[in-house]
Structure formats: structure tokens, C-alpha cells
Amino acid sequence: MIRFLTDLIGVILISSSMFVFASSVLGIYRFRYVLNRMHSAALCETLGMMLLVSGLTFLLGISWHSAKMILIVVFLWMASPVASHLIARAEVLTHAHITDELEVVDDERHI
């Protein structure tokens, strides 16, 4: 019974990570500006990877392999936000008219 419950939790976590990956891929296509795209790409690298690996940990149970996978998440969470931050910094530093991109458009009126 407990085995069934942990498997169920693992499958739910992996399915939600697949949802996060799919929506972030959609976001990469749908957004037009680098910073918006980077927001959605960074989402899949942090939240999606965490959900996926925690689902796999639930499926595997407590073992050395799941400890290693948790380490993978720790290192990804260290590395990937820094990489996204550096991309954003490069974009902000090299874009000559960055304020043009930051304008907030009222979605209801300007379609």
C-alpha cells in the first residue's frame, strides 16, 4: 500500500514536471524578447528539474542513487540561475534601447 502511494506521488510529480517543461517550451516559442524567453527557460531548468528528480526519488525509494539525484538538483539550482542571470546581464548591458522593451502594454485595450 505504501509502495503504491509513493509510486502514485512519483508519477504525479513527474507528470507535473512534464507540464512545466511543455509550458516553458511553449513560452520560449511564444515570447518575443530575450528576457521573457529567458524567464520561461529558467523555469524549466529549476522547477521542472526539481519536480522530475523528486518524482524519480519517490519512485526509487531511499538509496544512494536518490541521494546522488538530489545532489544533481542542488548543483543545477546553483548553476542554472547564475547562467540565466549572466545572460540577462549581457542583454541589459548590450541592448542600446532597453527601455523600449520594458514598456507595459495594457492587454485589454491594445490587442
Binding site: 548543483f75 546553483m78 548553476a79 547564475v82 542571470h85 549572466l86 546581464r89
Partner: peptide, 12 residues
């Protein structure tokens, strides 16, 4: 120099 990158480099 980017301080976030430097701190993470020192750790990693």
C-alpha cells in the same frame, strides 16, 4: 566583475 558569478565560482 559579476559578484553572483564570483560567489558561485568560489563555492563550486
Amino acid at each position: 566583475r559579476d559578484m553572483i558569478l564570483q560567489t558561485m565560482t568560489i563555492i563550486l
